Amino acid sequence: MSDVVPSPVQRLIDATNAGDTAAFLAVFTEDGAVDDWGRTFRGVDAITGWSDAEFIGKQVTLDITTADVSGQVTTIVAQVGGNGFNGPSTFGFTTAGDRVSLMTITG
């Protein structure tokens, strides 16, 4: 799938699957945000707290099953594994240059 998914999104997925919080955070723009079902976490401190409690801290893994790129927005469906939610989920990623400005979890 990496031939379809833009580089910043692939780096975020790779960092997630490696459990590498520093690499995960480095993919976001300075004012980047995560929108997790309407709960928004903006900036490195807020994203770190969210990730520690609900994402990388839960050893989340993402196995992309479909990807669609439309301009700066990439939508993926991934099989989520780890020690929290498990099952298919939909993620949206808005890119800005070589980084992600917004990661949205919607389903």
Rank of each mutant, 00 (worst) to 15 (best):
M1Y: 14
M1V: 15
M1F: 12
S2N: 13
D3Q: 14
V4H: 12
V5R: 05
S7E: 15
S7L: 11
P8F: 11
V9I: 00
L12Q: 13
I13G: 07
A15L: 08
A15P: 06
T16W: 10
T16Y: 11
A18P: 01
G19D: 08
D20F: 11
T21C: 09
A26S: 15
V27H: 07
F28T: 09
D31N: 10
D31C: 00
V34D: 13
D35E: 10
D36P: 14
W37P: 03
G38S: 08
G43A: 03
V44W: 00
D45V: 02
A46K: 00
I47S: 06
I47C: 09
I47R: 06
G49Q: 05
G49P: 01
G49W: 04
D52M: 07
A53G: 12
A53R: 02
E54K: 08
K58W: 06
L62D: 08
D63M: 09
T65K: 14
T66V: 13
A67P: 05
V69A: 04
V69S: 01
V69W: 01
G71E: 10
Q72W: 02
T74C: 01
T74F: 03
Q79G: 04
Q79T: 15
G81E: 04
G84H: 03
G84A: 14
F85I: 01
G87Y: 13
S89W: 07
T90V: 10
F91A: 06
T94Y: 07
T94D: 11
T94A: 08
R99A: 14
R99S: 14
V100Q: 00
M103P: 00
T106G: 02
T106K: 02
